[in-house]
């Protein structure tokens, strides 16, 4: 790790102020992804602002019948919350499908959303990677890209977003609440948080530098069943090859794009009476693969259809 200075933020406003005034500053809370990357010098912050103990760990009911998840609530706390389990089971299921208990005990809501890709070419600093080193090229494009994106990839980057939790949040139409460096609170749909790679895969979100996620707000749960299904190479403690979150009529896919992928074409097809398989085929008409990840297209087709069926079954 490169040397850095460390401060424990007094409050959220002080945190964003410090972040905007200190060169190379980054927020840290759980640290399970940031420290992983700092050890490899993929991340090289000069200053860490610890927001882990700010009073942003609450999980509280909102007046509209939804739930607000504090940004530094641990993944475990969210998954275990009785309101989450009762009203948003897809979220609880998605969280416990990710990482390990130890990681989930430390990892936070905001950190989970902001975790970076697990692409092997991103992790090996000797390899070209436009995300890690803009302009260096993409090692995965013609490489061992078994786990690469099938939606929204570019010639600059075919990496995927690997969060489980975020897939469920996208299906649940969550909103992200932030504090900007100027101290303004803002809120926007979670689908507007992450970017597609385009020419700038190193830019992963639409947050402005120094902007702090303070909470994620869930609207009241949608009518209908919910489920989360994840496929992976081993039974637990492994990144996914693909995942599907179903929440009523909403459908989101994981590990298939640079961001959690809202399957709007499939949703539209389902709304107009298509079968789950037909709906998935509609969505996957827009997919493209890079060779070794060809299997993801039929995999998502089958997994999506099965998950939709399970959610409907569960709603009965």
């Amino acid at each position: 790790m490169r040397p850095f200075t460390y401060e424990r933020a007094a409050d959220a406003r002080a945190a964003v102020k410090s972040a905007s005034e200190t060169p190379g500053a980054r927020f840290i809370a759980g640290g399970t992804n940031l420290l992983d990357l700092m050890k490899l010098e993929i991340e090289r912050p000069q200053h860490l602002i610890d927001v882990g103990r700010l009073p942003m760990a609450e999980i509280e009911d909102t007046p509209d019948g939804g739930l607000r998840l504090g940004a530094v609530a641990s993944n475990t706390a969210v998954a275990a919350d009785s309101r989450v389990r009762g009203r948003y089971p897809v979220l609880s299921q998605a969280i416990v499908a990710g990482g390990s208990p130890q990681l989930r005990n430390k990892a936070t809501v905001a950190g989970n959303l902001l975790q970076r890709t697990r692409c092997a070419y991103f992790y090996d600093t000797s390899k070209p990677c436009n995300k890690r080193e803009p302009g260096s090229g993409c090692g995965a494009l013609e490489g061992l890209n078994r786990n690469a994106a099938i939606f929204g990839a570019s010639h600059a980057c075919i990496a995927t977003h690997t969060s489980d939790m975020a897939v469920a949040l996208v299906a649940l139409d969550a909103r992200v609440e932030t504090l900007t460096p100027s101290g303004q609170a803002r809120s926007f749909p979670i689908l507007e948080l992450h970017r597609l790679p385009g020419e700038t895969p190193h830019l992963e979100t639409h947050l402005v530098p120094g902007e702090l996620i303070t909470a994620v707000a869930l609207p009241p749960p949608p009518p209908g069943g919910q489920t989360y299904r994840k496929v992976r190479d081993r039974a637990s403690y492994a990144g996914g090859l693909a995942s599907v979150a179903v929440a009523g009529g909403a459908l989101a896919l994981g590990m298939v794009a640079h961001k959690p992928w809202r399957a709007v074409d499939a949703e539209a097809a389902l709304a107009s009476g298509a079968s789950p398989s037909e709906a998935m085929a509609r969505e996957l008409a827009g997919a493209s693969s890079a060779g070794r990840n060809d299997f993801k297209i039929p995999l998502v087709a089958r997994l999506g259809a099965a998950a939709i069926g399970e959610a409907r079954e569960g709603a009965r």
Partner: peptide
């Protein structure tokens, strides 16, 4: 995370 040996499950 990428060389997968079995876990308990």
């Amino acid at each position: 995370a990428q060389y997968l040996v079995p876990v308990q499950a």
